[in-house]
Simulated assay, not measured.
Amino acid sequence: MPRITVAEQAGVGLDGAPRPSEDVVLVRPDAVIVLDGATSLRPELPSGGWYAHRLAGQLAEELAAHPDAALPDLLAGAIGTLAAAAGLTPGHSPSSTVALLRWTADRVDALVLGDSPVVAFGPDGPRVLADDRLAAVPRRGGGYRDRLRSGTGYGAGHLRALRAGGAAMDRLRNREGGFWIAEADPRAGHRARTARWPRSAVREVLMTTDGVSCAVDDYGIFPDWPAVLRHSVDKGLLSVLEMVRAAERTDPHGIRWPRPKPHDDQALVHVDFTEIPK
Protein backbone atom coordinates (compact mmCIF):
# COMPACT_ATOMS: atom_id res chain seq x y z
CA MET A 1 0.00 0.00 0.00
CA PRO A 2 1.36 3.47 -0.82
CA ARG A 3 1.79 6.12 1.85
CA ILE A 4 -1.41 8.19 2.03
CA THR A 5 -1.69 11.58 3.74
CA VAL A 6 -4.94 13.49 4.18
CA ALA A 7 -5.73 17.07 5.21
CA GLU A 8 -9.25 18.44 5.67
CA GLN A 9 -10.89 21.62 6.94
CA ALA A 10 -14.54 22.55 7.20
CA GLY A 11 -15.74 25.73 5.56
CA VAL A 12 -18.88 27.64 6.49
CA GLY A 13 -22.54 27.29 5.65
CA LEU A 14 -24.54 29.62 3.43
CA ASP A 15 -25.28 31.68 6.53
CA GLY A 16 -21.55 32.12 7.15
CA ALA A 17 -21.64 30.04 10.34
CA PRO A 18 -19.30 27.08 11.00
CA ARG A 19 -20.74 23.62 10.40
CA PRO A 20 -19.35 20.11 9.72
CA SER A 21 -17.57 19.56 6.43
CA GLU A 22 -19.56 18.06 3.56
CA ASP A 23 -16.35 16.72 1.98
CA VAL A 24 -15.64 13.03 2.57
CA VAL A 25 -12.36 11.11 2.26
CA LEU A 26 -12.37 7.33 2.59
CA VAL A 27 -9.13 5.30 2.35
CA ARG A 28 -9.10 1.62 1.46
CA PRO A 29 -6.10 -0.72 1.09
CA ASP A 30 -6.36 -0.43 -2.71
CA ALA A 31 -8.26 2.80 -3.27
CA VAL A 32 -9.06 6.34 -2.14
CA ILE A 33 -12.52 7.91 -2.41
CA VAL A 34 -12.94 11.70 -2.28
CA LEU A 35 -16.41 13.29 -2.44
CA ASP A 36 -17.62 16.86 -2.18
CA GLY A 37 -21.27 17.00 -1.17
CA ALA A 38 -23.03 19.97 -2.74
CA THR A 39 -24.37 22.46 -0.21
CA SER A 40 -28.14 22.20 -0.47
CA LEU A 41 -30.09 25.24 -1.60
CA ARG A 42 -33.37 23.45 -0.92
CA PRO A 43 -34.06 22.98 2.81
CA GLU A 44 -36.53 20.16 2.16
CA LEU A 45 -33.72 17.91 0.86
CA PRO A 46 -31.10 16.01 2.85
CA SER A 47 -27.73 17.75 2.92
CA GLY A 48 -24.93 17.17 0.46
CA GLY A 49 -22.83 15.89 3.35
CA TRP A 50 -25.49 13.29 4.20
CA TYR A 51 -25.42 12.10 0.61
CA ALA A 52 -21.61 12.14 0.28
CA HIS A 53 -21.10 10.03 3.41
CA ARG A 54 -23.58 7.43 2.26
CA LEU A 55 -22.29 7.32 -1.30
CA ALA A 56 -18.72 6.91 -0.02
CA GLY A 57 -19.80 3.94 2.06
CA GLN A 58 -21.63 2.37 -0.86
CA LEU A 59 -18.63 2.91 -3.15
CA ALA A 60 -16.39 1.21 -0.61
CA GLU A 61 -18.72 -1.79 -0.62
CA GLU A 62 -18.72 -1.90 -4.43
CA LEU A 63 -14.91 -1.70 -4.57
CA ALA A 64 -14.59 -4.56 -2.10
CA ALA A 65 -17.16 -6.76 -3.82
CA HIS A 66 -15.97 -6.12 -7.40
CA PRO A 67 -12.23 -5.35 -7.31
CA ASP A 68 -11.78 -5.82 -11.07
CA ALA A 69 -14.86 -3.95 -12.27
CA ALA A 70 -14.55 -0.75 -14.27
CA LEU A 71 -14.81 2.34 -12.09
CA PRO A 72 -17.77 3.83 -14.03
CA ASP A 73 -19.70 0.59 -13.47
CA LEU A 74 -18.93 0.70 -9.75
CA LEU A 75 -20.04 4.32 -9.49
CA ALA A 76 -23.23 3.70 -11.44
CA GLY A 77 -24.02 0.75 -9.20
CA ALA A 78 -23.37 2.74 -6.03
CA ILE A 79 -25.56 5.64 -7.17
CA GLY A 80 -28.39 3.29 -8.11
CA THR A 81 -28.21 1.28 -4.89
CA LEU A 82 -28.18 4.39 -2.70
CA ALA A 83 -31.03 6.00 -4.64
CA ALA A 84 -33.17 2.88 -4.26
CA ALA A 85 -32.37 2.45 -0.56
CA ALA A 86 -32.98 6.10 0.35
CA GLY A 87 -35.91 6.73 -1.98
CA LEU A 88 -34.08 9.39 -3.99
CA THR A 89 -35.45 10.60 -7.32
CA PRO A 90 -33.51 12.29 -10.15
CA GLY A 91 -33.77 16.05 -10.08
CA HIS A 92 -35.02 16.12 -6.48
CA SER A 93 -32.07 14.79 -4.50
CA PRO A 94 -28.79 15.91 -2.93
CA SER A 95 -25.65 15.47 -4.99
CA SER A 96 -21.88 15.15 -4.79
CA THR A 97 -18.74 15.20 -6.90
CA VAL A 98 -16.72 11.99 -7.02
CA ALA A 99 -12.98 11.34 -7.32
CA LEU A 100 -11.74 7.74 -7.22
CA LEU A 101 -8.25 6.30 -7.30
CA ARG A 102 -7.62 2.54 -7.38
CA TRP A 103 -4.36 0.66 -7.85
CA THR A 104 -2.98 -2.81 -8.40
CA ALA A 105 0.59 -4.02 -8.77
CA ASP A 106 0.43 -3.14 -12.47
CA ARG A 107 -1.83 -0.13 -12.95
CA VAL A 108 -3.47 2.93 -11.45
CA ASP A 109 -7.08 3.79 -12.38
CA ALA A 110 -8.74 7.15 -11.76
CA LEU A 111 -12.23 8.60 -12.16
CA VAL A 112 -13.66 12.07 -11.66
CA LEU A 113 -17.25 13.28 -11.85
CA GLY A 114 -17.64 16.97 -11.10
CA ASP A 115 -14.99 19.45 -10.03
CA SER A 116 -12.80 17.28 -7.78
CA PRO A 117 -9.65 16.64 -9.86
CA VAL A 118 -7.05 13.89 -9.68
CA VAL A 119 -3.46 14.79 -10.61
CA ALA A 120 -0.92 12.02 -11.24
CA PHE A 121 2.82 12.78 -11.26
CA GLY A 122 5.39 10.66 -13.06
CA PRO A 123 8.62 10.89 -15.05
CA ASP A 124 6.77 12.67 -17.89
CA GLY A 125 5.26 15.35 -15.63
CA PRO A 126 1.75 15.84 -14.27
CA ARG A 127 -1.37 14.34 -15.78
CA VAL A 128 -4.54 16.17 -14.74
CA LEU A 129 -7.82 14.28 -14.80
CA ALA A 130 -10.56 16.89 -14.47
CA ASP A 131 -14.22 17.38 -15.35
CA ASP A 132 -14.83 20.91 -16.62
CA ARG A 133 -18.41 20.46 -17.81
CA LEU A 134 -19.95 22.33 -14.88
CA ALA A 135 -17.57 25.26 -15.37
CA ALA A 136 -18.41 25.30 -19.09
CA VAL A 137 -22.16 25.70 -18.54
CA PRO A 138 -23.10 29.21 -19.80
CA ARG A 139 -24.04 31.64 -17.05
CA ARG A 140 -26.58 34.38 -17.61
CA GLY A 141 -25.83 37.88 -16.39
CA GLY A 142 -27.28 39.14 -13.13
CA GLY A 143 -26.38 36.04 -11.12
CA TYR A 144 -24.71 35.84 -7.73
CA ARG A 145 -21.25 36.42 -9.23
CA ASP A 146 -22.27 39.76 -10.72
CA ARG A 147 -23.89 40.76 -7.44
CA LEU A 148 -20.77 39.95 -5.44
CA ARG A 149 -18.52 41.80 -7.89
CA SER A 150 -20.68 44.87 -7.36
CA GLY A 151 -19.98 44.75 -3.62
CA THR A 152 -23.33 43.55 -2.29
CA GLY A 153 -21.69 40.89 -0.13
CA TYR A 154 -23.04 37.73 1.49
CA GLY A 155 -26.51 38.67 2.65
CA ALA A 156 -30.12 37.72 2.06
CA GLY A 157 -29.93 38.96 -1.52
CA HIS A 158 -26.97 36.68 -2.15
CA LEU A 159 -28.90 33.65 -0.94
CA ARG A 160 -31.85 34.54 -3.18
CA ALA A 161 -29.50 34.86 -6.16
CA LEU A 162 -27.89 31.50 -5.33
CA ARG A 163 -31.27 29.79 -5.18
CA ALA A 164 -32.38 31.33 -8.47
CA GLY A 165 -29.16 30.19 -10.12
CA GLY A 166 -29.47 26.78 -8.52
CA ALA A 167 -32.95 26.32 -9.96
CA ALA A 168 -31.58 27.08 -13.43
CA MET A 169 -28.70 24.64 -12.93
CA ASP A 170 -31.14 21.93 -11.81
CA ARG A 171 -32.51 21.90 -15.35
CA LEU A 172 -29.02 21.13 -16.70
CA ARG A 173 -28.02 18.50 -14.15
CA ASN A 174 -27.44 15.05 -15.61
CA ARG A 175 -28.50 16.17 -19.06
CA GLU A 176 -26.65 15.99 -22.36
CA GLY A 177 -25.32 19.46 -23.06
CA GLY A 178 -25.32 20.23 -19.34
CA PHE A 179 -23.22 18.57 -16.66
CA TRP A 180 -23.12 15.24 -14.85
CA ILE A 181 -22.91 14.69 -11.11
CA ALA A 182 -23.59 11.91 -8.61
CA GLU A 183 -27.22 12.24 -7.56
CA ALA A 184 -30.03 9.71 -8.18
CA ASP A 185 -29.43 8.82 -11.83
CA PRO A 186 -27.03 5.86 -12.24
CA ARG A 187 -26.26 6.95 -15.82
CA ALA A 188 -24.04 9.67 -14.37
CA GLY A 189 -21.49 7.03 -13.42
CA HIS A 190 -20.90 6.26 -17.08
CA ARG A 191 -20.46 9.96 -17.91
CA ALA A 192 -17.47 10.28 -15.57
CA ARG A 193 -13.99 11.10 -16.86
CA THR A 194 -11.52 8.24 -16.46
CA ALA A 195 -7.83 7.47 -16.91
CA ARG A 196 -5.55 4.46 -16.57
CA TRP A 197 -1.79 4.61 -16.13
CA PRO A 198 0.88 1.92 -15.71
CA ARG A 199 1.85 1.71 -12.04
CA SER A 200 5.48 2.30 -13.07
CA ALA A 201 4.48 5.67 -14.61
CA VAL A 202 2.89 7.05 -11.42
CA ARG A 203 5.06 8.21 -8.54
CA GLU A 204 2.61 10.42 -6.65
CA VAL A 205 -1.01 11.54 -6.88
CA LEU A 206 -2.93 14.51 -5.51
CA MET A 207 -6.71 14.37 -5.09
CA THR A 208 -8.64 17.49 -4.11
CA THR A 209 -12.05 19.03 -3.77
CA ASP A 210 -12.63 22.44 -5.33
CA GLY A 211 -12.02 24.14 -2.00
CA VAL A 212 -8.35 23.34 -2.68
CA SER A 213 -8.10 23.16 -6.47
CA CYS A 214 -9.16 26.82 -6.54
CA ALA A 215 -5.59 27.57 -5.41
CA VAL A 216 -4.49 26.71 -8.97
CA ASP A 217 -7.63 27.16 -11.05
CA ASP A 218 -8.99 30.44 -9.62
CA TYR A 219 -6.79 32.20 -7.09
CA GLY A 220 -3.38 31.72 -8.70
CA ILE A 221 -1.75 30.96 -5.36
CA PHE A 222 0.25 28.25 -7.11
CA PRO A 223 1.24 28.50 -10.78
CA ASP A 224 0.65 24.81 -11.45
CA TRP A 225 0.13 21.42 -9.84
CA PRO A 226 3.84 20.57 -9.50
CA ALA A 227 4.12 23.65 -7.26
CA VAL A 228 1.26 22.33 -5.10
CA LEU A 229 3.01 18.97 -4.82
CA ARG A 230 6.33 20.55 -3.85
CA HIS A 231 4.68 22.70 -1.20
CA SER A 232 2.68 19.73 0.12
CA VAL A 233 5.85 17.67 0.53
CA ASP A 234 7.98 20.48 1.93
CA LYS A 235 5.46 22.28 4.17
CA GLY A 236 2.68 19.78 4.65
CA LEU A 237 -0.80 19.44 3.18
CA LEU A 238 -2.42 21.60 5.84
CA SER A 239 -0.20 24.50 4.78
CA VAL A 240 -1.78 24.38 1.32
CA LEU A 241 -5.24 24.59 2.88
CA GLU A 242 -4.19 27.50 5.06
CA MET A 243 -2.81 29.42 2.07
CA VAL A 244 -6.23 29.16 0.42
CA ARG A 245 -7.88 30.40 3.59
CA ALA A 246 -5.45 33.31 3.86
CA ALA A 247 -6.21 34.35 0.27
CA GLU A 248 -9.96 34.20 0.92
CA ARG A 249 -9.61 36.36 4.02
CA THR A 250 -8.21 39.13 1.78
CA ASP A 251 -11.51 38.98 -0.18
CA PRO A 252 -14.15 38.60 2.56
CA HIS A 253 -17.03 39.88 0.42
CA GLY A 254 -16.28 37.82 -2.70
CA ILE A 255 -15.51 40.80 -4.91
CA ARG A 256 -12.24 39.53 -6.40
CA TRP A 257 -13.23 35.85 -6.40
CA PRO A 258 -17.04 35.54 -6.47
CA ARG A 259 -17.93 32.27 -4.78
CA PRO A 260 -21.02 30.84 -3.09
CA LYS A 261 -19.51 31.04 0.41
CA PRO A 262 -16.58 32.94 1.94
CA HIS A 263 -14.88 29.60 2.75
CA ASP A 264 -15.60 26.23 1.15
CA ASP A 265 -14.86 22.83 2.66
CA GLN A 266 -11.37 21.57 1.85
CA ALA A 267 -9.93 18.10 1.28
CA LEU A 268 -6.47 17.27 -0.07
CA VAL A 269 -5.01 13.76 -0.38
CA HIS A 270 -1.41 12.86 -1.24
CA VAL A 271 -0.77 9.32 -2.41
CA ASP A 272 2.94 8.46 -2.56
CA PHE A 273 3.77 5.32 -4.50
CA THR A 274 7.52 5.83 -4.03
CA GLU A 275 7.42 5.18 -0.29
CA ILE A 276 5.70 2.01 0.85
CA PRO A 277 5.14 1.99 4.64
CA LYS A 278 6.24 -1.09 6.55
Rank of each mutant, 00 (worst) to 15 (best):
V6C: 09
A10C: 07
G13K: 07
A17T: 12
P20F: 10
E22Y: 07
L26V: 14
V32W: 13
V34K: 14
V34F: 11
L41H: 00
P46R: 06
S47V: 01
S47M: 00
G48S: 06
Y51P: 08
H53V: 13
G57H: 10
L59S: 05
A60T: 08
E61Y: 09
E62G: 01
L63A: 06
A64L: 13
P72Q: 09
L74P: 03
L75R: 13
A76T: 15
G77H: 12
G77V: 10
A78D: 05
T81K: 12
L82V: 03
A99V: 03
T104F: 11
V108R: 11
V112A: 03
V112G: 05
D115S: 00
D115V: 00
A120I: 04
P126S: 14
R133K: 09
R133W: 03
R133V: 00
L134V: 06
A135W: 00
A136Y: 00
R140F: 02
G141E: 14
R147N: 03
L148R: 08
L148A: 05
R149Q: 14
G155T: 07
A156N: 01
G157I: 02
A161Y: 03
R163M: 10
G165S: 04
G166A: 03
A167T: 10
A168W: 03
M169E: 13
G178Q: 05
I181E: 04
D185L: 13
P186I: 08
P186A: 07
R191S: 07
R191F: 05
R196N: 08
W197Y: 15
S200I: 15
V205T: 12
L206I: 12
T208W: 01
T209N: 04
D210E: 08
A215D: 04
D218E: 13
Y219L: 15
F222I: 02
W225Q: 12
A227V: 04
R230V: 04
V233S: 02
K235I: 00
G236Q: 04
L237R: 06
L238C: 11
V240G: 07
V240F: 07
V240C: 09
M243Q: 14
E248I: 10
P252D: 03
P252S: 05
I255H: 06
R259T: 14
P262C: 02
P262Y: 04
P262N: 01
H263F: 15
D264H: 13
V271E: 12
V271D: 12
T274F: 05
E275V: 15
